[in-house]
Design a protein around this nucleic acid. Structure first.
Lengths: 256, 256
DNA sequence: CGTTCCCTTGACACCGATCAACTCTGGTGG
DNA sequence: CCACCAGAGTTGATCGGTGTCAAGGGAACG
């Protein structure tokens, strides 16, 4: 959990702007914000922070004086149970907000753990507090991002509660592909998928063994290739059909 | 889905104030707002709306010009799957907000359905938009309520994904009892629980038959009484232990 | 006083969990 | 460059928690 500080000056120093690429891409694609509108956000990045795979980014019960934005790498929201099992409650990809809720709530109700090496952009809380006045459309966009996360959560609950394993995993792969595309991180039908089958199991409420068998099935049907942390979806239409996937919940736009 | 309009004048007309009892109780208990601080909220209620059990309050894909606050009765957020099965994503009790998300997002990603006869307080959207300026602590409280709903969602996902049926149902009963208490609607260890076993099954990812058997088990162990839509918890400590229940996620307070 | 949900119970089937190797891959150090 | 090692993936055999199907009983409501 090494801390490293970079240039936090106002303006669009190229290092800072590069850090925020996935976030700005996401906000442009999904909300329709223009680069000039996004400038206030980029200029608020005060420092960056690195973490290695397995490190906790923030723990249950903690509070933070920074809003953390994932700039590179993957992370997960994790809830731990008394018996040692865990439920992954969200996968965070570049451009996702870690802890916007701490603007309003007192402490985290879950851990956030880095799944790969990770770079975080840190935005000071007090800078955020004046954001609604200084750049209302950006503040709006951040809340929108949080509300889409909640819509994702409802989809996950639906997957775990009512879809069978094959359909649930297909749905997860469709969603991740779609989100990576929105963040500008997909290469056509292929994405980096740097998570283990056990982590996929913790997200879908299954066991690692069963996830493995289901993936074999999807591979066997020629729907996907997944190896060396690279996912390629060969027949996205059919995969979406198996999943009952409808991307509307990820597209929810800003109100006119 | 009859619409009925009542006095929407400013001030604390007793009818309007009475409507909001559970909401104000909740906000007082959970956030520590005082009655004078809540006055602006009560004065914003523009009309009320009634619905009968089974009626849709708002449908997936719809938008609304009102924020609906549940004043009496129970409702549920429901996601429908292509095969006809359903996942209940939230139980809404008096004092809960139905569609705050529509302040920012364009359309609903799920249905909200009345589970009993229901009274809704309607707050006009444009009145809400100026709320952060006029009564920042109330606006804060509303967002807080939405974020607690998200924390609840994470708990549900954890229940469905990683707890067994007995533990998941015990957890649900603990949560509902706690929330009813916070809304000022509990009588010691007893609450109204006007939902069917099938609905409890749709919320926990189980079948009605299995929910029935689990409830029999909890009854047989002397932990609860549940009949005629009345739930009494006889041994809340042991029920909480079975559930792995920790109410922190429902208590998340306003930031100092 | 019948109709309609809802609850209850039993027998049986099955999806996914568990247990237990074994293999493969990537990274590390000699 | 190779030997080693830990983590991740793979596979088979078996178990068990829930689902499914089917039927009957009870309570609310007109």
């Amino acid at each position: 959990m090494a801390m490293r500080f970079v240039d936090g000056s106002t303006g669009s120093g190229s290092a800072t702007a590069g850090l925020c690429k996935p976030l700005t891409t996401k906000l442009q694609n999904a909300v329709g914000l223009s680069p000039p509108e996004l400038a206030p956000l980029i200029s608020m990045i005060q420092s960056t922070r690195q973490a290695r795979a397995g490190d906790a980014i923030i723990r249950q019960g903690e509070k933070s004086v920074f809003l953390h934005v994932l700039a590179s790498g993957w992370a997960a929201r994790i809830k731990h149970l008394p018996d040692g099992s865990r439920q992954i409650t969200a996968f965070l990809i570049p451009g996702d907000l870690c802890d916007l809720q701490l603007m309003i709530l007192e402490e985290m109700d879950h851990d956030i753990v880095a799944l790969t090496a990770v770079t975080l952009a840190c935005i000071a809380e007090d800078a955020l507090e004046s954001l609604p006045l200084r750049a209302p459309e950006v503040a709006h966009a951040l809340w929108r991002s949080a509300l889409v996360d909640e819509a994702i959560l409802r989809q996950w609950l639906t997957s775990v509660g009512r879809r069978d394993a094959r359909s649930a995993i297909a749905h997860m792969l469709c969603e991740l592909h779609f989100r990576m595309t929105t963040a500008g991180l997909a290469r056509d039908d292929a994405i980096d998928l740097p998570i283990t089958q056990a982590q996929l199991a913790d997200a879908t409420g299954l066991t690692g063994v069963h996830v493995n068998r289901v993936l074999q099935g999807l591979r066997g049907d020629g729907l996907i290739t997944l190896s060396r942390r690279q996912l390629t979806i060969h027949d996205i239409a059919r995969l979406g059909e198996i999943a009952g996937f409808d991307a509307t919940y990820l597209r929810l736009k800003r109100k006119a």
